[in-house]
């Protein structure tokens, strides 16, 4: 079997599998819903990484400042 045919066979396996699902469909709805909530709601609106968009040097400086601002001299 050629590589193309093997890939088609694997793809067909998955497609048929999903088509023949019964109780699994409800679970997939749940998975998709959860991923939407996690990545499109929580991640976008509530969990923006503090260091996002900064260069490596900016990140080093930012964290360095945060780590040293708590130092007391006594």
């Amino acid at each position: 079997m050629s590589i193309k045919a093997k890939i088609a066979s694997v793809a067909n396996f998955y497609i048929q599998g999903f088509r023949e699902m019964t109780w699994g469909r409800e679970l997939w709805v749940l998975i998709i819903l959860k991923l939407v909530i996690l990545f499109l709601v929580l991640r976008l609106f509530f969990f923006k990484p503090v260091l996002a968009g900064q260069t490596e040097e900016q990140k080093s400086d930012f964290v360095g400042e945060r780590l040293t601002e708590q130092i007391t001299d006594n």
Partner: peptide, 10 residues
Amino acid sequence: GTNFSNYSWF
């Protein structure tokens, strides 16, 4: 990334 950014870089 959000709550523990110092840790995650460190």
